[in-house]
Design a binder for these strands. Structure first.
Length: 844
RNA sequence: GCCGAAGUGGCGGAAUAGGCAGACGCGCACGACUCAAAAUCGUGUUCCCUACGGGAAUGAGGGUUCGAUUCCCUCCUUCGGCACCA
């Protein structure tokens, strides 16, 4: 490449500032260099984040890991681009808080204890130690002095305290209900933790069953409506849609029917405009009124059906394609709008858990009711007539669920029903208002969303700080007695009861009200409770007068950018929003949202395009890659190989490209090169490229577009090699280019950037404390531009014009092109379009 | 069934206030260096043809436009979520 490569004579700016070392001393050795810088940064507390009122703050949070044992490539994929962006914000002048911790409670450690007898505490803290060490090899700017571990009493004391605050607000309550139970993990689960059609446990994939248990719940539904509003936060549409669908808001009316004997039956409907078409009612088999109203001659059949429904699993019961079944109760209800007497049936397609567990059935306008009516020969009365068709209840073959004109509906005949939902539909609005006047119904909203079940029958979680006394019921442990510590001496048995219950003494305590003997709650909390507030503990992880230090809160909160996987859309990301709103109402926090901007990374798949798993043997271990290539290369490849928000299968050949790039960076800065002389034009072009790249990289960092940051840096490097070949080394422009290059490189590859900055450019330590360079727009501007010229939409030539050329000048330059003339074949152009300074299209 | 995301070379991907499709990289081919290999460097690499030229092409088909990967309509495929929610 150059004859001066091995020369020991001259060295100049832009190449080497130190005493000329022998070539081999310049060998790129990330395995030696990286730990050296990591140790120095740590010793110098380079990444310590402390309140500094003179700077704008930036709280960059990335989801904390569960200490499973080893860091996998997914952790790197989530964390290192987030780290690069946090570093970028820091160089931009923000005071950046970028903390890390561990979500340390949870089932795997306890299951391992049952299997191997190792105490979860021991295993968890060993894993944390290992993972912390592995994380340090990533070269992240985590402020380890702010680390929190959710299984540490110093942390879970406040998890318990928060439970008590929610209890005091009436947001934590206990109720008996049929809850989802994982038979493998031997615990109840929140609804969010039961996944998919097969209804399997989120952790272990085992199909869940139902159990009737008395459990603790958080009244999350109180915030259902507010959780649907995402005002002021910049979250991906995808997440907002998932949460919106999960909450499942339906607008309609609640209407009061009565049984013939006068018992009130409240129903919910989204279509009050079809009330006149209700020809029967259906109760869920579990509806409390069933036993009371069932006619004696129907009793046997009703009981048999109820029993069968109870035996069936949810999956069987909720299968959509299953043929509908039901039995007549022998009782009748009166439709309040027309006093019609209609039969009451029970059927398992009506769920006790939604609405009131009873529905009015309008077979003419609801697919399910229609199928049921046809099967059991129940009458079908159309009340919405579509345009141009006359519906006949006896012959129609499907329910008509859409718009039309109301018929058979007394005072509302002729009213137009549209396809709009809720009060926007004129028919629904008119009928709802009429019901309200009559006093038999009112506008109502229903949600699919359920309260959050937080009891877990397991040991390795934060204790629920509640005490039960036969006289005074449930009361919180006095706050000055927190934390309720987990006992260490427990027996590991998968009994379906918390080991805390089997402990001989732990549960025995006294009632906080009367001081008489009482019993502790032996269930522990869902770990999602711990992770609902961890971002607050980072503010002051060792603070003991409250969950966080208010001064820290006032400076750092809210979280500015939150990064993590989308799989938490309806779990953690919904829980933490609920939690924050509850704390706001308790006066503990401010504002309605904890995290202002959210960005989700995609998933790294195995090389076989399958999800990585030990059983498939397609797991990529970052430690091996770091050992082989160094952390900088792994970081660069992770940012480069896929769109961050999309993810992609891993390609172990591809990383060679990033390794090559990093080595080429090293070579450019460390090999010895004679300063040369070159044209002003070359230097001008170099500056232009540098500032254009800077503009692009700055934009892409802001927008989490990491892959194009790397390709831009690769392009600039290629350009710099050429420019140096043309003799640019030694010029002021070259020095500027090398300086800006390392600053742009620093967030991506912090170690090599530091080494080259400090030891080869001889600039003051540390590159990570430099200001992000300013874009010189004048330098970035093009002198002349190449404009493609199309004839009838096909590119036929390119003309070069000065950047300031007018449209007229561009046009005549285009028409003057020989090539273009050839395609015109002597004809006059019909039209010439000059699209700003981007393109000319000649239409013949 | 409903909701959402995505379909671009052999592969990962780039380019969308409508304006040069395939940047950057992997892989591959050829060349330089080498006894040789690795590493490194250079050149080429969407497909097709009658090949100094020309044509086709961004899942398929249609539309709007001087011009569509980008906007609109109808489909197809893949992935994710929800699912008898009244």
């Amino acid at each position: 490449m150059t004859e001066t490569k091995n020369s020991k004579t001259t060295k100049k700016p832009g190449s080497i500032k130190t005493e000329t070392p022998a070539r081999r001393d310049n060998a790129f050795n990330p395995q030696g260099m990286e730990p050296k810088w990591q140790a120095k940064w740590e010793a110098d507390k380079l990444y310590r984040a402390v309140i500094d009122e003179s700077k704008p703050k930036h709280y960059a949070l990335t989801m904390l890991p569960y200490p499973s044992g080893d860091l996998h490539i997914g952790h790197w994929y989530a964390m290192t681009p987030s780290d690069a962006r946090a570093r970028f914000k820091r160089m931009q002048g923000y005071n950046v808080l970028f903390p890390m911790g561990f979500d340390a409670f949870g089932l795997p450690a306890e299951n391992a204890a049952i299997k191997e007898g190792v105490h979860p505490m021991q295993r968890t803290f060993e894993n944390i130690k290992r993972m912390r060490k592995q994380m340090k090899t990533m070269g992240t700017m985590f402020d380890w002095e702010r680390e929190m571990v959710s299984a540490d009493p110093e942390y879970y004391k406040w998890t318990e305290w928060f439970f008590i605050q929610l209890f005091k607000m009436g947001l934590a309550y206990r109720k008996m209900s049929a809850v989802d139970w994982c038979p493998k993990d031997n615990t109840t689960l929140a609804r969010e933790q039961v996944i998919g059609e097969e209804r399997v446990c989120e952790r272990c994939g085992t199909p869940v069953i139902k159990k009737e248990l008395e459990q603790w719940f958080f009244r999350a539904t109180k915030y259902a409506d507010e959780l649907l509003h995402f005002d002021g936060i910049d979250w991906p549409e995808r997440v907002k849609t998932l949460q919106t669908n999960w909450i499942g808001r339906s607008e309609g009316a609640s209407v009061l029917f009565k049984t013939e004997s006068g018992d009130p039956i409240e129903i919910f409907t989204t279509r009050p405009d079809t009330l006149w078409g209700a020809t029967f009612m259906v109760f869920s088999p579990e509806h409390p009124l069933v036993d009371k109203i069932a006619a004696p001659e129907q009793k046997t059949e009703v009981d048999a059906y109820k029993e069968q429904a109870a035996r069936q699993s949810d999956i069987e019961r909720e299968a959509v394609d299953k043929e509908k079944t039901g039995v007549f109760t022998g009782a009748y209800a009166i439709n309040p709008v027309n006093e019609e007497r209609i039969p009451i049936w029970i059927a398992d397609y009506v769920l006790m858990s939604y609405g009131t567990g009873a529905i009015m059935a309008v077979p003419a306008h609801d697919e399910r009711d229609f199928a049921f009516a046809r099967k059991y020969g129940l009458p079908v009365i159309p009340v919405i007539q579509p345009e141009g068709v006359e519906l006949n209840g006896e012959t129609m073959e499907a329910a008509h669920e859409h718009e039309g004109i109301m018929i058979n509906s007394g005072p509302f005949n002729g009213t137009r029903a549209t396809n709009e939902k809720g009060m926007k539909n004129p028919a629904i609005k008119a009928v709802t208002e009429w019901l309200e006047q009559k006093g038999t119904g009112k506008h109502a909203v229903n949600y699919r969303y359920r309260d959050w079940l937080i009891s877990r029958q397991r040991y390795w979680g934060a204790p629920i700080p509640m005490v039960h006394c036969d006289v005074h019921g449930w009361n919180p442990v006095p706050e000055d007695q927190l934390p309720v510590m987990l006992p260490e001496d427990v027996e590991w048995k998968p009994t379906g009861e918390s080991p805390l219950k089997l402990h001989p003494t732990w549960k025995n305590t006294t009632c906080p009200v009367c001081g008489e003997p009482a019993t502790r709650e032996t269930d522990t909390m869902d770990t999602f409770m711990c992770s609902s507030w961890y971002h607050l503990r980072y503010l002051s992880p060792h603070y003991d007068k409250g969950p966080f230090d208010e001064a820290e809160y006032n400076y750092w909160m809210p979280v500015d950018t939150y990064t993590g996987g989308i799989e938490h859309a309806t779990m953690h990301l919904l829980y933490t929003r609920f939690f924050h709103k509850a704390l706001r109402d308790a006066g503990i926090t401010e504002g309605s949202e904890p995290m202002m901007q959210l960005r989700n990374q995609g998933m790294v798949l195995g090389e076989d395009n399958e999800k990585m798993s030990k059983s498939r043997g397609n797991v990529i271990a970052p430690d091996v890659l770091v050992k082989r290539y160094g952390a900088d290369t792994v970081r660069a490849y992770i940012m480069f190989f896929a769109r961050w928000d999309m993810g992609a299968p891993w390609d172990s050949h591809g990383i060679e490209g990033s390794a090559r790039w990093i080595r080429r960076v090293w070579t450019l800065f460390t090999d010895q090169f004679q300063p040369g002389s070159t044209s002003e034009e070359t230097k001008r072009t170099l500056r232009r490229r540098v500032h254009q790249t800077l503009r692009k990289v700055t934009h892409d960092f802001e927008n989490f577009e990491f892959n194009t940051i790397i390709s831009s840096l690769m392009e600039l490097l290629n350009e710099m090699y050429k420019t140096r070949e043309a003799g640019a080394a030694g010029s002021a422009e070259w020095d500027e280019a090398t300086e800006i290059y390392l600053k742009m490189l620093a967030p991506v590859a912090p170690h090599i950037a530091e080494e080259l900055w400090t030891n080869y450019l001889g600039k003051p330590y540390s590159v990570h404390q430099q200001q992000w360079p300013k874009i010189d727009e004048a330098a970035a501007k093009e002198d002349s531009i190449e404009i493609p010229v199309q004839v009838n939409g096909k590119v036929r030539d390119r003309v070069v014009v000065p950047a300031e050329a007018s449209e007229e000048e561009i046009k005549s330059a285009a028409l003057a092109s020989e090539h273009v003339q050839k395609f015109l074949e002597g004809k006059e152009p019909k039209k010439v379009i000059v699209a700003q300074k981007r393109l000319v299209n000649v239409v013949v």
